[in-house]
């Protein structure tokens, strides 16, 4: 594995993640695993919950970095630690709320939402790799058209825009072809 024996500086890690380097994210994940999971475990969380919270925090960090919306003024670990703290606090509040609701009313599983997410995930997987990447860059990483064009090797931003439009249209039609639009109404 890359970076196995190599220590990276804070700036290097940040720059690599900003550039979408997944290996740098893996490096970061491994480096702070114990520190971050300990936060949750020592606050009445299980190891599974701790891992989940840490991964969610890293995803948030990744998204902030790649979208260019983050300027680091502290250590990366401090920043991720604060995200973990917030996420775990929210989770504890959610659990507490859920526990109180359970006392008052029977639990209703939101099977419709779960089913809907499954449908969309299946349709995304049916797209080609290029479309998948373009849509992910645009809707998840929030990259600019220029960045998408650069990453995908498109001639210019207009090509990137057209490609994004076509891919999105294809996905919408794919989903609609399989399921009625009414299925998505809340």
């Amino acid at each position: 594995m890359a970076f196995k024996n190599k220590e990276m500086s804070e700036t290097e890690v940040f720059d690599r993640i900003k550039g979408g380097d997944e290996k740098a994210l893996e490096y970061l994940y491994k480096k702070y695993y114990r520190m971050m999971t300990k936060l949750v475990i020592s606050n009445s969380g299980t190891e599974d919950e701790a891992r989940d919270i840490y991964q969610d925090a890293l995803v948030v960090f990744w998204q902030k970095c790649t979208s260019g919306n983050l300027v680091m003024t502290s250590k990366i670990s401090t920043y991720i630690y604060s995200i973990c703290q917030n996420l775990w606090r929210k989770e504890l509040e959610r659990k507490k709320r859920l526990s109180n609701e359970e006392k008052d009313m029977p639990v209703v599983l939101d099977t419709d939402t779960a089913e809907r997410e499954k449908i969309i995930a299946a349709c995304i997987n049916e797209l080609g790799e290029t479309c998948k990447k373009v849509l992910t860059y645009y809707y998840f990483d929030e990259l600019s058209m220029q960045d998408i064009a650069d990453k995908m090797g498109f001639a210019n931003t207009d090509t990137a825009k057209t490609k994004k439009y076509k891919c999105k249209k294809k996905l919408d039609e794919l989903i609609k072809s399989k399921y009625s639009e009414l299925d998505f109404l809340d």
């Binding site: 893996e26 994940y29 114990r34 997410e117 969309i120 849509l135 989903i175």
Partner: peptide
């Protein structure tokens, strides 16, 4: 729902990748 689906698919992909990283 579609945009959320695209975002969730990427989150799932990243988390699956992190789950493969060996940690103590």
């Amino acid at each position: 729902a579609v945009i959320k689906g695209i975002q969730n698919a990427r989150i799932a992909e990243l988390k699956a990748m992190l789950n493969q990283v060996p940690v103590g």
